[in-house]
Amino acid sequence: MSEGLCETVHKAQEWRTMNVIVCVKQIPDPANPGALDASSNTLKREGKLILDESDSYGVEMALQLVDAAGGGEVSLVSMAPNSETAGLRTALAMGATKAVLVSDPALQGSDALTTAKILAAAIQRLGGADLIIAATESSDGYTGTVPEQLAEVLGLPSVTFSKKVAIEGGVLKADRQTEDGYDEVTCPLPALISVTAGVVEPRYPSFKGIMAAKSKPVDEVTAADLGVTPVGWAGAGQQISNVAQAEARAAGEVIEDDGETFGKIVTFLEGLKVI
């Protein structure tokens, strides 16, 4: 056996199993317009929360990578108020094994940096993983910095905006979106990636999966349990100083198509001297 082949066999054994942690956010249903709480100027997060659709891609990606590795498990970390688990149950129903939920009234008003520290501590509570996956940004707050901040807190390499991901011989290979196209990136594990929507097709939870999810372990902790202080408004390096309504853009003419409305568009474009 050549030395090269020995190496390959060794790597294959070493990476026979793979543990992945997915950061998921539980958000108000985007179908209902959001609102700010007038007293705190934070996004209202009361009522039923759902799994952020952006995160369903990461959960699916994790499940596929663990399958491809031939073993291991997918765990979840999430930060949400009121012990909310509805979104986590969806991800557990898809096939994740367990979750850490950080729920603590003290976290209200936390900035992205504090969020990254909290998620990092939750990941460490799970003992870390070979790969951490997050969405590129949430669908409600869309700050878009948490994944890379999380990588820095954990001291990990990262590939953000991954639109194609594979693990070959224990090495991550990803196509990373850029302004002009994409870069091919390789990275040893452990590492963190953020995945773009559409990177994989998320599965629908099966009935069996939904039933099984009800009894899967969700470890609920506070910021103090994780040893992260200060948090919330006290830990945030920012303070909301004003909230104003933007100048509304008035709706113009809306007409039902009767087969001739294309003419209206032509006239409109002529008026603007575009044609």
Partner: peptide
């Protein structure tokens, strides 16, 4: 700028300096 590289730089720097970053 709120670009791909911009986001990575600001997020990493934010942690290194222990400073919040206001985005968007």
């Amino acid at each position: 700028p709120q670009s791909y590289e911009g986001r990575d730089v600001m997020a990493r720097l934010s942690v290194k300096l222990g400073r919040t970053v206001l985005t968007n």
